[in-house]
Computed example of a mutant assay.
Amino acid sequence: MDVFEAIAEPSRRELLDLLAERERPAGELVDHLPRLTQPAVSRHLRILREVGLVDVRPDGQRRIYTLRADRLIEIENWISQYRKYWPGHLDALEQHLAQTQNQTQKEPTE
């Protein structure tokens, strides 16, 4: 599995979001994902660890997980080739929203 396959799963992205805030023990990560069982969270963390997106260290009987942001560079490098297309699309969206707002303001209210 590569980084892209790993982040394709929404629960793994949620785990990365939590770890982007700060390092966390496994139990706290489980608490933040109540819809998942502890074994399911552990499997997701194992996958994230295997692709190098998180590190884990023991702290007594707890396992502390940390984001490895340097591994996100692979995603950044892939996305960067598409950035050149964004300004035109964002400009078009801005124009569309402005037109929609103008039309809404011109419509008579009843």
Rank of each mutant, 00 (worst) to 15 (best):
T66F: 08
T37H: 06
L97I: 14
G60R: 03
A6F: 10
A98E: 14
L29D: 03
A92R: 14
L67W: 03
G52P: 06
L93S: 10
E21S: 09
D2G: 12
N102H: 11
E50W: 04
R24L: 12
M1R: 11
D31P: 00
S80Y: 04
P108T: 06
A8Y: 06
E94S: 14
K84V: 14
T37D: 10
Q61M: 10
A20R: 11
L29W: 01
A69I: 13
L90K: 13
I47M: 11
R68T: 12
R63V: 06
P39W: 04
A6S: 10
A6G: 07
L36I: 02
T66C: 03
V41S: 06
N77E: 14
P34I: 02
A92F: 07
V41D: 05
D59E: 15
E50P: 01
Y65V: 01
E76T: 13
L18H: 09
L15K: 01
A20M: 07
L93G: 05
F4D: 08
D31F: 03
Q95A: 15
V51I: 03
R62C: 01
R46N: 09
E74A: 14
A26H: 03
R22E: 14
L53E: 06
S11F: 05
S11E: 13
E94D: 15
D2R: 04
E74N: 01
I64C: 04
A40W: 02
P58Y: 00
Q61E: 13
T100W: 09
V3I: 15
A26L: 12
V54Q: 02
Q101E: 15
R22A: 15
V30S: 02
E50L: 12
W86E: 12
L93E: 12
A20S: 14
V56T: 11
T37W: 01
E9L: 09
E5T: 12
A26T: 14
R12P: 08
E5H: 07
S80A: 15
H89V: 10
L15D: 02
N77I: 02
G88V: 01
P10F: 03
P10D: 08
I7S: 05
